[in-house]
Design a protein around this nucleic acid. Structure first.
Lengths: 156, 156
DNA sequence: CCTTGAACTCAAGTTCACTTCAACTTGAAC
DNA sequence: GTTCAAGTTGAAGTGAACTTGAGTTCAAGG
């Protein structure tokens, strides 16, 4: 576990599918670590590839960099997730996805109910009601969770 | 339809749930219009409340400002959407939501299949595979559509 | 008239997750 | 020893959708 063959930037980038700049960014943010060659170039352990896979997966599920850092932080050292780690995390993500799906379905069923009504009433229409739906006040089921409100450009 | 009682900024803001700054922004972006008082303050027609409801709904569905402007642009003048308009638009949004839901479900079923495997293989794991899933190349069903990749802070 | 809160404008700032740029250095191959 | 792709840094830029701030003016009540 400290075996030879450390990978250079280009290799990691190619294999992980992340741009080199993104990888440097993740290092700066403390999500991954790198050794350095004599001349200061990064040399990555193989396990970094798994961490990057993890990062991509988490990011697809909608976690922020900060949340990913937390999640990774709970894995001691820079160890590769064990089966148990992965199960815990999977459940976490699964719940997250369930919420997102449910939110979209609420929105959709509201839409179906609305089709043709032409209402868009500020008081009763689920779509246009700014805060909450159907009288559930406070932190009740919101139409869309904050985690699903808007995308951003990103790569490709 | 040009009747008296125009509403001032605060009223519109309170009733629509949008911050005044957001409303000014929408006006600047051409999504809504405003008359001016003698002293240069905005006076909104009541129909603007409907437009704003529309904007919130569209934005919840994930449309960008530009898309919303297009959609609104198809309604002649500043008229309130008719039943037919609303049906057309609803169908458009419905498809959009279906896509988003399907994408999340693909992600989730990939996750379920993965639970406990501990793999996160760069080659085969649906979660960490950077580009496409299950060999569908090109523009086939992506794990997540671009429209669902990331939220942004926004209000509240 | 005076006060007060609501509104105004315009420029600049915010957030997130990166990318791009300019100017330079490394290191593997020939 | 030369070459040149690959790597380095730090700073600045990107894009969407707003928000914030500074400094000023409006409008309604007393």
């Amino acid at each position: 576990m400290d075996g030879r063959d450390l990978l250079p930037m280009g290799e990691i980038s190619r294999r992980s599918g992340f741009a080199a700049s993104a990888i440097r960014y993740y290092e700066a943010e403390g999500l991954i670590e790198a050794h350095r060659s004599g001349g200061g170039q990064r040399r990555f352990e193989r396990s970094v590839l798994r961490r990057l896979a993890f990062i991509r997966a988490a990011s697809n599920v909608g976690l922020t960099i900060e949340e990913i850092r937390d999640e990774l932080g709970r894995l001691p050292g820079n160890r590769t997730p064990t089966k148990a780690d992965w199960q815990r995390i999977s459940r976490h993500w699964g719940r997250r996805l369930d919420e997102q799906i449910a939110a979209l379905q609420r929105l959709k069923s509201g839409l179906d109910g609305c089709i043709g009504c032409g209402c868009l009433s500020l008081r009763s229409c689920a779509f246009s009601n700014p805060d909450d739906v159907h009288g559930e006040r406070g932190s009740g089921a919101r139409l869309l969770p904050d985690s699903l409100r808007r995308p951003h450009p990103s790569r490709r």
